[in-house]
Amino acid sequence: AWDCGIAVVSMVLLALGKIDTPLFALAESPDQSVWTIDLATILQRFQVPDFTFFTSYIGINWQYTNDAFYNDALGDDRERVHRLFASAADAGIRVIPMALEASDLRRFLMSGQYAAIVLTDLRYLQCIACARGTGFMARRLFPLVQGWRAGHYILLTDFLPDKGQFIYRDPGSDASLCYVTERVLERARGSVGTDNDVIVVRI
């Protein structure tokens, strides 16, 4: 089944020459909901040599147990997600318990050597190009109700300092590239429920 997180990891693996078919076509997606630690585990499974997972919370945040968006998935996923975090170091997955600052994110991207898988809240993500009608906004794929959260993964590829904009690829958009201001991105990736999850990958 299609999943935005699996789609974004596929973008990375395709760029690195690790696969030649998107993962969702190869049934590599976990049976349960996809969490960022699942994406890190897939990168490790395909022997991606240099990536780091930054998060402000290790495991499943207990504060979300009564949240409607997470409620259905938490019961099935809790044991698996905690097990993956607990075994991450032994598996060679580098997990850093901190929220990556925007300045560090800019520095990684502007080096030309890294991309970043970022978990956002789709309610707050707004592509500048899509807003002008040059692409299909990913949010149209989701029947959002006001007040609901909608976790959505994107792949940041560059930063334009003269415009203050991040360039990213959105698996839910038909636009080849999307653009977002730093202010909008910070709101989307810092929203409650994202845990500031970012995987920085050397490409």
Score class of each variant (00 low, 15 high):
17 G>T: 07
13 L>C: 13
28 E>M: 04
125 L>W: 07
40 A>G: 10
175 A>E: 15
20 D>K: 13
177 L>R: 15
153 Y>T: 04
180 V>I: 15
186 E>V: 02
114 Y>L: 01
197 D>L: 05
83 R>H: 06
195 D>Q: 09
14 L>M: 15
113 Q>K: 15
101 E>V: 01
130 C>E: 15
8 V>F: 03
49 P>A: 09
17 G>E: 06
21 T>A: 03
18 K>G: 00
189 R>D: 04
103 S>Q: 10
85 F>K: 03
42 I>V: 13
194 T>C: 07
201 V>R: 12
70 Y>M: 05
155 L>C: 10
46 F>A: 06
135 G>T: 05
161 P>Y: 08
173 S>G: 08
186 E>S: 12
84 L>F: 05
22 P>F: 01
187 R>P: 00
64 Y>P: 05
42 I>D: 03
25 A>G: 00
196 N>A: 11
113 Q>L: 14
20 D>W: 00
134 T>G: 00
146 Q>H: 09
180 V>T: 13
14 L>S: 10
16 L>W: 05
29 S>H: 03
29 S>N: 08
181 T>C: 06
67 D>R: 12
162 D>R: 14
134 T>F: 13
120 T>I: 09
22 P>D: 06
92 G>R: 10
122 L>E: 13
66 N>Q: 14
118 V>E: 07
194 T>G: 11
80 R>W: 00
168 Y>G: 11
21 T>Y: 04
54 F>C: 04
46 F>I: 02
75 G>H: 06
42 I>Y: 00
56 S>Y: 01
149 R>M: 09
69 F>H: 14
15 A>N: 13
13 L>I: 07
84 L>E: 06
113 Q>F: 03
197 D>S: 04
166 F>G: 08
10 S>N: 12
113 Q>D: 14
195 D>T: 04
178 C>H: 10
108 F>P: 04
11 M>Q: 14
129 A>W: 03
130 C>T: 09
169 R>D: 01
112 G>P: 09
55 T>H: 10
105 L>R: 15
15 A>K: 15
108 F>C: 06
44 Q>K: 14
61 N>D: 13
45 R>M: 07
67 D>L: 02
101 E>K: 14
18 K>T: 02
15 A>E: 15
82 H>R: 11
94 R>W: 00
133 G>Y: 10
60 I>E: 12
15 A>M: 08
119 L>F: 00
135 G>I: 03
200 V>I: 15
25 A>V: 02
144 L>N: 12
178 C>I: 04
92 G>Y: 09
70 Y>N: 10
33 S>A: 14
109 L>P: 12
112 G>R: 09
131 A>Q: 15
169 R>T: 07
40 A>D: 07
165 Q>E: 15
170 D>C: 03
72 D>M: 07
97 P>H: 09
188 A>N: 12
174 D>Q: 08
31 D>M: 04
40 A>M: 05
88 A>P: 11
78 R>G: 00
